[in-house]
Nucleic acid binder design. Sequence first.
DNA 1: GTCTATAACTCGATAGAC
DNA 2: GTCTATCGAGTTATAGAC
Lengths: 198, 198
Amino acid sequence: MDSTSDKILAAAKKVFQEKGMAGARMQDIADEAGINKALLHYYFKNKEQLFFRIFSEALNQFFPKIIENIQSEKPLFEKISTFCSAYIEMMLKNPYLPLFIVNEINNHPDRMREIFWQGRENLFLGFTAQVEAEYSAGIIKQVSPANLFLNMLSMCVFPFVAKPMWLIASGMDELQFRFFMEQRKTEVPRFIIESIKK
Amino acid sequence: MDSTSDKILAAAKKVFQEKGMAGARMQDIADEAGINKALLHYYFKNKEQLFFRIFSEALNQFFPKIIENIQSEKPLFEKISTFCSAYIEMMLKNPYLPLFIVNEINNHPDRMREIFWQGRENLFLGFTAQVEAEYSAGIIKQVSPANLFLNMLSMCVFPFVAKPMWLIASGMDELQFRFFMEQRKTEVPRFIIESIKK
DNA sequence: GTCTATAACTCGATAGAC
DNA sequence: GTCTATCGAGTTATAGAC
């Protein structure tokens, strides 16, 4: 069913992700949900509370998959391929997500810090060990794990963050962009593996 | 000398780049400049006008160097090296610039379109020709110019866009980040060239 | 639960003294 | 040029009827 609460959450997600906390208006959210402002406050005490509900959901959609992937037991090349493919696919479905997250973390890094470190130890320990192991095994060249990971993340996420800029500069339209990103699901892993394989 | 107008511009740059158009307050800018709101309006008719002054300067700082570089006559590998090095250096000095630009283009893609296409024809024509020429000459593998360029841009710019997130996830502090990015000035070109060289 | 009406507040902008 | 004081529009949030 599509309860009023659900309608509000869907509307809030759309408006907040497009305009951010500062740019969003409670009126926009009410309009998008097809209700009035008073009812919004009946369900969610204030704008902040509603915002954090949406923001937390966005974080939970974005990060757990990253963490799970890089801590998995798969061989490195396979890990890289599935990571890029799954991430680009997810962002094709939620194109506003990356910029939303990046922005709001930028505005409240302190709050973020708490949410992030819930029982997690150093994210990169396992990944670092794996990269070193595959180097010792002669599978890959010597490479800094932090650089490798950041390169992978950059090439997957940045195109969505900079999408409007890229569309203008490249002259692509929406459909061409979509096709381009579909290609990148395999192009990016190929590019990375080509660079590090021995 | 440090005229009132200069103080305002410096303050506005800081506040707008940190908080964006929607998040910035004229009061913040006045405080930062050590004056009051009325004086702000004496020098700049309204917030929009002040914002566009700052935004235009940011665009002019960001894009001309990209365009000049990719349209230059240098060999590809050299082009990649100087691009990454110069861009990372510039962003180390203006860390808020990339996210500011990306955001405001996102909020007003229409305005941007006009500013951008001032007598410019397809940006990538020359670059595409060069990549194809170096492929024919047996210097590099076959590679899509758009993907190559976007990969390069992503690996240079994204770390600054996602800096607060990266600091939290990696555990780096400001100084370590700076050192890390200094390394990437040579690491990123190496990574790219390793991937495409024959 | 849902609405209308409005209070309370934030913020950009202006008036007017010095 | 610079300030204090204040207006007025736009927004969040609440009161109270149904």
